[in-house]
Design a protein around this nucleic acid. Structure first.
Lengths: 338, 338
DNA sequence: CTAAAGTATGCACACGTCTGCAGCCCGGCG
DNA sequence: CGCCGGGCTGCAGACGTGTGCATACTTTAG
């Protein structure tokens, strides 16, 4: 058996008896009107019959357009991201775009590699969920004029398209809830300082505490949004012999780490310490304690970001917009009265 | 400001003062030895300086090789898959391959679309986690001579590369555990009949029950591996007034659905009914009840599959292998004595 | 009936990279 | 001194598709 070479546009053309340019036009939606309907139908039939697939590499080369968008995320294994990715995929694919995702582990070198890869594949746009407050990748995108939109995290400047969360609103709701339960000594376990999420949540915490005349110094930082980091940050808090009856954690994973650290020293949640997370990753309601958290619309954030990106790719230009999604506080039973 | 066009191999060549073919060779690891080290170094410097990225579309077109592999999964939102994907990405990327994933929702049409997409992008190989027992996509791969390996699910034939789980072993371990606890009336909530996972687990269940002279008719089927399906399947079981003290669910999500259904009618887990899931998705240990389950090595399954695929792509040919990974029963507290 | 306008298709080249072949230079050997 | 061989580089064509331009054919208006 001979190795079948995949059919090209010319094979289809020969089969039908027309020039290959005619086939090219017939198979391109926006050129199809130039071709007589009868011929077009015949070409489509032949293409189907021969098992023709357009060679995107060739198309991409000629048109200088890859019909692919890149997605940069810290880690696909973090449960926040799959729904976002799905949101992105659903709208991008509906418009004929392929999405290529890369995990960067919040590592600057991997981020650079991923960016180079995306450039090599000449993606038509980029969705970046890995942004640092000052991000060299973002600078590169601007310099190289690659359409991009940030999701989840933003950069310092507001002059960049982004779909993020109204952190101040979420933190206020969480703290209102704790205060209503009678808590006054509330600690914050902050996320990475160089991300907007970590920084903004911390700032909102401090602002709130100052306004309400509460102690804003009960605080510990983490270097990553992980259970392990939450665990050790909470341990530090405990070792410093600080007195607190509640913790606002920067996200759910950190909150889980805190719970572990508290349990380790015999403190119970919510009886001894109330705790609130952030993001609302799946299955929280089944856990014990079921974590009170700020839910963010992960899928919608992804689809919105993709929508925005497609607008940019299609050349619709207006000034950059920062879309802030409203989180909603989901009260479960990791919080209770003092 | 003029729109900068991205530099090509020719720009680099002009900059250095050599022919562009020399640049091409200098930048290709396996051709580099043909170039004098001095020139090669100079070219690399120039490429870096000018911000050159190889245009993969052009390269792909010429070499008839895309350095991309496709991954077909049912749904990226199902927590089983992200670790597998990560495993695939890590080994594929280490070898210079980009991975493109598509969610198919176990929908035949979407599977076909995804396959067409992968063909269009002329991926060098495919990893398929969506296989049905008889799968047209697999047939297409064979017909078109596209290297591929199955992961998670296999097809009827053993003559196809696959990395899967030793289901019989897992089911036996789970049922041994239940029997040791004194259970004799054990129900099975089966997964999709047209998948190897669903089918093999069911068969292992029936075989085991027969050997141990237990009632193998306590059974309900589902159409998807989801919480909702598990819920309604369990409801059916309950409505039929069957007496059982334990459930072996085909996977964790189905098990969760069963728990919900049991709770709804006031039955407690594990006091009234013991239950065992499958896969060990993340965070199970934090849930209540903490689900007893068969852990499968998700990341390793992904990385093994990718390794196998790369071998195929590199032309190493030997007869197809079916790798069966050993699951390990993780006993938590969704199971207890009768 | 003729000219203009419109429609449908063919022609040829370009996109950026790769690679077989040819040719050059240089050192070594007979 | 001439020839050979090996190392390095240039040359040119090809990969499959898209598109501006030319051309042939059809329709319409005057």
């Amino acid at each position: 058996m001979v190795k079948k070479t995949t059919p090209t546009i010319r094979d289809v053309a020969n089969y039908v008896g027309v020039h290959h340019s005619t086939v090219s036009r017939a198979l391109n939606p926006d050129q199809k009107r130039k071709i007589s309907p009868a011929v077009a139908r015949e070409i489509e039939k032949a293409a189907e019959k021969l098992g023709y697939y357009r060679n995107i590499a060739a198309s991409s080369l000629k048109r200088n357009k890859s019909f692919a968008v890149g997605v940069l995320i810290p880690d696909i294994t973090n449960p926040v991201f799959p729904p976002m990715i799905r949101g992105i995929q659903d709208v991008a694919e509906a418009d004929g775009y392929t999405v290529i995702t890369a995990s960067t582990d919040d590592d600057v070198k991997k981020e650079r590699d991923a960016f180079r890869l995306m450039r090599s594949r000449s993606v038509d746009g980029l969705i970046i969920a890995t942004a640092h407050l000052d991000d060299p990748i973002v600078d590169l995108c601007i310099e190289d004029q690659i359409p991009f939109v940030l999701v989840n995290r933003k950069v310092r400047s507001d002059n960049v398209n982004a779909v993020i969360v109204d952190e101040a609103f979420g933190v206020k709701a969480a703290l209102d809830h704790l205060v209503a339960l009678g808590h006054t000594r509330i600690a914050h376990v902050a996320g990475q300082e160089h991300t907007s999420t970590g920084r903004e949540r911390l700032k909102a915490f401090q602002d709130y505490m100052k306004i309400h005349d509460l102690d804003a110094t009960l605080m510990s930082r983490t270097e990553k949004f992980t259970i392990e980091e939450g665990f050790s940050a909470c341990e530090k808090l405990l070792k410093r012999d600080m007195i607190f009856t509640a913790i606002l954690a920067s996200n759910d994973l950190i909150a889980m780490g805190c719970i572990d650290a508290l349990n380790k020293v015999g403190k119970r949640v919510p009886d001894d310490v109330s705790i609130i997370g952030g993001n609302d990753i799946p299955f929280l309601s089944r856990m014990v304690p079921a974590l009170t958290t700020n839910r963010i619309p992960k899928y919608e954030m992804g689809s919105q970001a993709a929508g925005l990106l497609l607008e940019l790719i299609h050349g619709i230009d207006r000034s950059p917009v920062v879309i802030r999604m409203q989180p909603s506080l989901i009260v479960r039973n990791s919080t209770g009265p003092v």
